[in-house]
Amino acid sequence: MDIKQLQYFAEVAKQKSFTRAAEVLHVSQPSISKMLKSLETELDVILLDRTERKIELTDAGQLVFEYAQRVLHIMGDLTASIEELRQVERGFVKLGLLPTVGAFLLPAAIAGFKKRYPHIELEMREYSARPLEVQVEQGHIDIGLTVLPVDEGRFEAIPLRSEEMVAIVHQEHWLYGRESVDLKELEDESFVLFTEEYAMHDVVRQACLRAGFEPKVAYMSSLWDFVGEMVAAQMGISLVPRSVAERLNKGRLHVVALSWPPIDWTYALICRKDRYLSHAARAFIGFVREHAYV
């Protein structure tokens, strides 16, 4: 039994005429007769009472007609749903974010996306950089918002926005009032760094190593605000993206640009290279790239 058999039979049952059914289906009447005969043979029942001038359903025919309508309705819904997916009218996207980063980068993009695609659901979870990559690689989330670099052998990376890293210092620090500083000048400073599972930790450490010194770590934290408070309390200095520094700077901190070497902090969306990416997920990536929210 196949869908075409049920479709032909259901149309004959509705029209009570082979001729009118053939016209509706745009097929020949012999094709319909042959299809219905094969259906009756397969089910081993008589579906249509042809003894009268008007075609009537037998009891078996009525039963098959009821089921055929259900099946054809389900198939119609399935076809429409698939088409909606192709047109990105509905779907589900699992998005992983770096803590805090997503909070100030994506709200406007998400709001715009939901307005454009109201039936696509977004599920957002926070991870530090390394666990986020693991989640993407294992397929638990579709897209990750992280910081470059990433392993381009495993991930497709879509760069979004780059910004400079800056130093933040307390009000009584010798750098207070300076507009810029060479990273090498910070060799004797104590640093308040993010914990090792965060991309920020490696970015700062590698930059210091390139400048010729190993940073002296006074404290480590996983919280942006706590890092800022520790710097304000004169426990050390820190290097953070400028957008973060501006959020933390409430009169108690001073922001100093790094004159050399410049340290880029580039946000990117990542997805696994060898994994199917849904229409909804691709629509989200395209929307974020197209609109200058980040």
Rank of each mutant, 00 (worst) to 15 (best):
G76R: 10
E123I: 15
I82R: 12
Y117D: 08
Q62N: 12
E42Y: 11
K94P: 09
F18R: 04
L47E: 05
P107F: 05
L25D: 00
V101S: 00
E52R: 15
S38P: 04
E66W: 10
G96T: 09
S33V: 07
I32P: 03
R116C: 03
V45M: 11
A80F: 04
K115P: 01
L85M: 15
V64P: 06
L43T: 14
R70Q: 13
T100M: 08
S17H: 03
F18V: 10
K34A: 06
L63Y: 06
V64F: 01
K94L: 08
K94T: 13
G76K: 12
E83V: 04
T79C: 02
R50I: 07
G76M: 09
I120W: 01
H119E: 09
E84I: 06
V88W: 08
P30D: 09
T41L: 13
F65P: 06
L57M: 06
A80D: 10
A111H: 09
E23M: 04
T19N: 10
T41A: 15
K37Y: 11
G61N: 08
Q69L: 10
Q69W: 05
G102S: 01
L72V: 00
E89H: 12
V64I: 15
P30Q: 07
T79P: 04
G61F: 08
D77E: 13
K54W: 01
A80H: 10
D59M: 12
L78T: 15
A111Y: 00
S38G: 14
P99C: 05
A111E: 09
M124E: 13
T79M: 06
A103W: 05
G76F: 12
K34T: 07
F18C: 10
E84Q: 15
R125P: 10
Y67T: 12
A103V: 02
A103K: 12
R90L: 06
A80R: 12
A109C: 03
I74H: 08
E23C: 02
D44S: 08
E56K: 14
E66R: 14
T58R: 00
V64N: 00
S28L: 07
E121F: 03
I55D: 02
V24W: 03
S81H: 12
I55S: 00
P107M: 07
G102M: 02
P118L: 07
D44E: 10
A22W: 06
F113M: 00
P118D: 00
E84A: 13
L36F: 04
P118F: 00
R20H: 11
L106E: 01
T100L: 08
L97T: 08
L57Y: 02
I82M: 11
L47C: 04
G61M: 08
H73Y: 11
Y117H: 14
K34S: 08
E121L: 05
Y117P: 01
M75D: 14
V101P: 00
G76N: 13
K37D: 13
